[in-house]
């Protein structure tokens, strides 16, 4: 089971919307049973980012963890969604 973390600044608004969309996408692609979703805020996760296999964030993260994080803003604007899901899929399949 892969661990997918979705985070935003407060863990209350955008991460919730993103979570709903990712859940739908996982279902459509028959991946629901392979991935467990976690939702949180950036400040709570910075120290344990390596616990997760895939990380989506709607907010900017510190430089030292930026490479591990996929930008989740496309799910809010609709711009660049396919590209974003390709990255997520690659991480799930890794």
């Amino acid at each position: 089971m892969k661990k997918l973390l979705i985070m935003c600044g407060t863990g209350i608004a955008t991460s919730t919307v993103v979570k709903g969309k990712v859940e739908e996408w996982l279902k459509e692609n028959n991946l629901s049973h392979e991935v467990k979703i976690y939702q949180s805020k950036v400040s709570d996760e910075i120290g344990r980012i390596d616990d997760y296999d895939v990380i989506l964030s709607t907010t900017l993260v510190p430089d030292n963890i930026r490479d591990k994080v996929i930008d989740g803003v496309p799910l809010l604007t609709g711009i660049g969604i396919d590209n974003m899901y390709e990255k997520v899929l690659a991480e799930i399949k890794r």
Partner: peptide, 13 residues
């Protein structure tokens, strides 16, 4: 809470 107004928020997005 995260669940509050979620439906509305999803629609808006």
């Amino acid at each position: 809470t995260p669940e509050d107004q979620l439906e509305m928020l999803q629609k808006l997005v």
